[in-house]
């Protein structure tokens, strides 16, 4: 039906909502699709559980909530435990395996893709770009929005002067995703 329903979860301060905003902006302004972003707010803006819900569609979007996402992007164990039961069968799970823990039992009916985004961000010297690494990873794995549009959306959504770092982080995530996809298709063939 040309509609992708994405849920992003983590804890406050990880830039979860910004990540959702960037995908939505890429879709709505640069890919000329429709996008609706909603978010759940807690009273504390740091540390508490936080999530963003994004619908990307070729059609007009009416009901704005995401009840059963087909893509789940999580950056904390709490978010994984809370949101993964709603992920639809054959849905895609993208997660930071350091944050969610390595040895979780992933439901066989979902397509799971893991990336140590936070550790990679630490290697870049800026833990706060883990969300942008996650976006690069998302761009490599999912064909919801184009890579080019995501890069545009990043450039127009982050503080001036941090473009180089963020685009580098995005590229790292993207390359990691590409390798992973190639590896998985090699295993299959």
């Amino acid at each position: 039906m040309g509609q992708t329903e994405i849920k992003l979860g983590g804890f406050g301060g990880q830039g979860i909502i910004l990540a959702g905003y960037i995908i939505g902006k890429a879709a709505a302004l640069y890919d000329k699709k429709n996008a609706t972003l909603t978010q759940s707010y807690g009273p504390e803006s740091r540390g508490g559980a936080c999530s963003a819900k994004l619908i990307v569609s070729d059609e007009e979007i009416d009901y704005p909530e995401v009840l059963y996402p087909n893509v789940l992007i999580v950056m904390s164990k709490e978010a994984y435990l809370k949101f993964s039961p709603a992920l639809i069968e054959n849905g895609s799970l993208l997660y930071d395996d350091d944050m969610v823990e390595n040895n979780i039992e992933i439901d066989k009916s979902v397509r799971a893709y893991a990336i140590p985004a936070t550790r990679m961000a630490e290697d870049l010297g800026k833990k706060i770009v883990a969300n942008i690494i996650m976006l690069g990873f998302f761009a490599a794995i999912m064909a919801v929005v184009t890579k080019r549009s995501l890069e545009e959306a990043i450039k127009t959504s982050i503080p001036k002067g941090s473009e180089e770092l963020n685009l580098m982080a995005f590229q790292k995530g993207f390359e990691y995703g590409r390798k992973l996809v190639k590896l998985q298709s090699d295993v299959k063939s």
Binding site: G24, A28, N34, A35, T36, L37, Y41, I61, P64
Partner: peptide, 9 residues
């Protein structure tokens, strides 16, 4: 609140 906090084009 839904309309106030919803982001769209």
């Amino acid at each position: 609140e839904v309309v106030g906090h919803m982001t769209e084009k």
